[in-house]
């Protein structure tokens, strides 16, 4: 489809269509967060505010855990900042493909730039282009579902007796495997996966904490940079 015949309606339809499978995957994760927060004594309002404000699943779980351990406030804020530091790379990488956004629009859009939205948007701009209609459709669908799932989990989470029975406690790693595999046709996919995976595991075994993400991610990026060839600079590495 060429640029002229691709309407806003098409962007909305594609944005929603691409996001539906992700919505299915994040509902149990959001509901489980709501249930755990309620169980730990957090009010429903505070639980929903965490999902609406921080809007980063892993950080929200980490916060609950640290609050439960009565960790000092500064250490909780620092831990969340470090765990979320990967987002710096997301807007650095994606921001260069957001020419269709107004400058202020970009900063509004970045509020929603969580892992799944980043993966969907990167894939979209590699196969076509990234436009605000597509991005915001996906962003708002993910955001609303995440908040709704948290709210319902906080209210009714006690009803899910043991999430492990259904494998729901493991949905997130599966989801990230699926997101990663969507980029398997990118240049140097295999060396990047292997080196960042091994580095992440080594950091997990030795340092723990949030280091696996920082070190694994950094090593993968360095490997990709070293392997790059000047003539490949236009190679967009089609996502499938």
């Amino acid at each position: 489809m060429d640029e002229a015949s691709h309407t806003v309606k098409d962007e909305l339809r594609d944005g929603f269509g691409d996001t539906v499978p992700v919505l299915v995957a994040i509902i149990p994760f959001g509901a489980l967060f709501g249930a755990l927060a309620a169980e730990s004594g957090m009010s429903v309002a505070a639980t929903v505010a965490m999902s609406a404000g921080i809007y980063a699943g892993a950080s929200q779980y980490l916060m609950l855990d640290l609050i439960g351990q009565s960790a000092p406030a500064w250490s909780i804020i620092l831990a969340v900042f470090v765990l979320n530091f990967r987002h710096v790379l997301y807007s650095a990488a994606l921001g260069r493909h957001m020419d269709a956004f107004r400058p202020t629009g970009r900063y509004f859009a970045f509020f929603f730039l969580a892992d799944p939205l980043y993966a969907l948007s990167e894939k979209r701009r590699r196969v076509r282009w990234l436009r605000p209609a597509y991005y915001m459709t996906s962003a708002l669908a993910l955001y609303c579902i995440w908040i709704a799932a948290t709210f319902l989990g906080a209210l009714f989470g006690g009803l899910i007796e043991n999430p492990a029975t259904y494998g729901l406690d493991f949905i997130l790693p599966l989801f990230f495997v699926s997101l990663t595999m969507a980029f398997r046709k990118s240049s140097n996919f295999l060396p990047t996966v292997l080196t960042s995976g091994v580095a992440s595991l080594a950091a997990w075994a030795t340092l723990g904490g949030t280091w696996p993400i920082m070190i694994g991610g950094a090593v993968g990026l360095v490997v990709a940079a070293v392997l790059a060839k000047p003539e490949n600079r236009q190679d967009k590495g089609e996502a499938s």
């Binding site: 990230f176 990663t180 995976g197 992440s200 696996p212 070190i215 694994g216 090593v219 490997v223």
Partner: peptide
């Protein structure tokens, strides 16, 4: 440029590996 192109793969792999 190549490192930025590799962000989704490197970061998501590092998230899931442990």
């Amino acid at each position: 440029e190549a490192a930025l192109e590799a962000v989704p793969v490197a970061v998501m792999t590092a998230l899931v590996a442990p």
